[in-house]
Design a protein around this nucleic acid. Structure first.
Lengths: 341, 341
DNA sequence: CTCCTCTTTGGAACCGGTTTCAGACCGGAT
DNA sequence: ATCCGGTCTGAAACCGGTTCCAAAGAGGAG
């Protein structure tokens, strides 16, 4: 036998030599092309087996200009909902020939690197960007490279996307509180997204809209913003609850933040929902354990649908550059109740 | 300007031509090699900018035989703990020049594909396998390819790994229940892992050991096994609670299963912990929300440490083929209590 | 047996980079 | 002017596949 030193792999030329054929023939056998005489095919397969050969995917990618990989960029550290979306993506991709490569873009630095890695279009055949609005410059590059790309829980003027109607959702949540009799309703909002100029989708807008429709004035001291991190929201909630005229209800722009608010209330001995109503947004897994009232958005479905659109684009079919909105649903559990008298 | 049609990218040869130099020089500039005259460098940088050039990472990988990517294979669908481990991996890799590519291996089919994709060693420079014992054949291939690989929450005779002492953990949980006075203690165990011959690490063993040390006989009808899916565990727990001589305590081999057991109890109107004590394993995030008593294992730390070992191997330093055990800790919350009288 | 067509096959070009190697260039010393 | 060392530079080989193209081979008809 050939002495195969550790770390050295057989190449297609080795297989060809051993089988006494040309590399082109080996390639044909590997890719199941027709027009290879059965006897020849057997000799090649035999050589492949004895050499324990496996083709190099990198070389293959370079030659084919295709990787059969789809990249997903997402900030999944601070974002439990992102994980659920990826599950949807995996589901949407199952059955296709594409594999998924997940890339975390939590920090500014990693985000830059992720795009650098992918935007030339030779690392992956398609891109899914989740819960982050890509910078204009990157979108330009992506489109220039002809790299199919779909946004999930994000928007951009020149890319197709899957999202929810945040204004409607914010209004839905706030209206639920109003209908319970609340008038002093605080908001723990999302931070202004870094690369977004389109504020029309914001949940804060829905909150303000619901209040003004009910003839309730928006009190600036009730409207706070911070990152989605639980402890940040807990801090904000603590401040709100320390106000002289403290709110009787809190609408948090995410379930994580809502749970932070509940913890802050518990720490001050304020009972939920008797003394304080709390409503979240997303309906992540823990929400049901905590009994959190929330606005459910179809997390899994968003990923599945995003993958579906991307596959359609990859198969050459038309995909419109537009935002597809998924439905929202109010889920009433046990953290909201009538206003205390 | 050159008409750059959509989907066509500038190549290094284009840059060289435009700058009036050879490709070697462009390559040198790209990689920051010394010995390039400043004037030449500027001309090249200029050409790069005007052509909007970015090198092809695939071509680069092929040439360098290196990808600067680390692959992580994990079943993260049914496994909330796996996500936490990946966070540790990302943390351990931050600061290094390596990027992480996460690959889901939930199904048999995807597992095979994952290994096929990676085991030649040209897709990634290193491999982390999480919560799955790799088949012998794959380990053989991985080692033959000289691909550095570290297991996290898994073991194999010829690969370094990070794990916990499951026997000790199982005993710790069971002893806690025994000390509370319980004698009728049921077990909802892990399914026998597909590719594992080494049963010595099993939590079931610790359970049996603790019982026999306390002089309590192991009752076969109390020992059940099923997948980690919550609803499966709920079904198993329902059966246990329907036994004529029903257990007063349940040790579940994972928090997910423990929560399933709690739900089953609630459904039958059995109070936890007054009538039934439940202890889990892992201390996943929801555990604290539910107030679950559990055996905490350092999930984040396991990933971080695995990444650390892999980086060490990648830098050419020695990594022993042995299992590194991380410490366990009993976390008593509110789902376990004294045996009902 | 010859001719023709269809199948099978291998050599070589190509994908887009990196790196070796030999030669061109440069300034200073003799 | 000549020689010498070191610095810059580009042509060509290489990484490991796929595929075009031309030629060899096989099989059937006349």
């Amino acid at each position: 036998m050939e002495p195969l030193s550790t770390g050295t792999q057989a190449r297609i030329a080795d297989v060809a030599a051993r089988a006494g054929v040309g590399v082109a023939t080996v390639s044909r056998v590997l890719n199941g092309h027709a027009n290879v005489r059965p006897a020849t095919r057997d000799r090649v397969l035999d050589a492949i087996r004895t050499l324990n050969y496996r083709p190099s995917s990198v070389a293959r990618n370079l030659s084919l200009q295709r990787t059969m990989v789809i990249g997903a960029l997402l900030p999944w550290f601070t974002n439990p909902s992102a994980v659920q979306r990826v599950r949807g993506i995996v589901d949407g991709l199952s059955g296709s020939a594409y594999d998924l490569m997940v890339f975390d873009i939590e920090s500014e630095d990693r985000q830059r690197r992720a795009f650098e890695l992918f935007d030339r279009g030779d690392r992956a055949d398609g891109l899914l960007v989740v819960s982050t609005n890509p910078p204009d410059m990157e979108v330009e590059r992506i489109n220039a490279a002809g790299l199919p790309c779909v946004l999930v829980d994000a928007v951009h003027a020149s890319l197709p996307s899957i999202a929810v109607d945040d204004v409607a959702g914010g209004e839905m949540a706030t209206r639920h509180l109003i209908e319970l009799g609340h008038r002093r309703i605080a908001l723990i909002g999302d931070p202004p997204p870094e690369f977004r100029f389109d504020w029309s989708r914001d949940r804060t807008r829905g909150y303000e809209q619901a209040l003004s429709r009910a003839g309730i004035e928006v009190r600036p001291e009730y409207v706070r913003e911070g990152t989605r991190l639980l402890h940040v929201a807990r801090g904000i909630a603590a401040e709100l609850l320390a106000l002289p005229d403290r709110p009787t209800a809190v609408f948090a722009a995410s379930d994580t933040q809502a749970i932070g608010a509940i913890e802050a209330a518990r720490a001050r001995g304020i009972r939920v929902p008797e003394e304080l109503s709390v409503i979240g947004f997303d309906d992540i897994e823990v929400a049901s354990y905590v009994g959190l009232t929330t606005v459910r958005q179809p997390l899994f479905e968003s990923g599945r649908r995003g993958a579906e659109l991307l596959l359609r684009a990859l198969s050459g079919r038309q995909v419109d550059v537009r935002t597809e909105l998924l439905p929202l649903e109010l889920v009433v559990r046990s953290t909201t109740g009538p206003v205390p008298i």
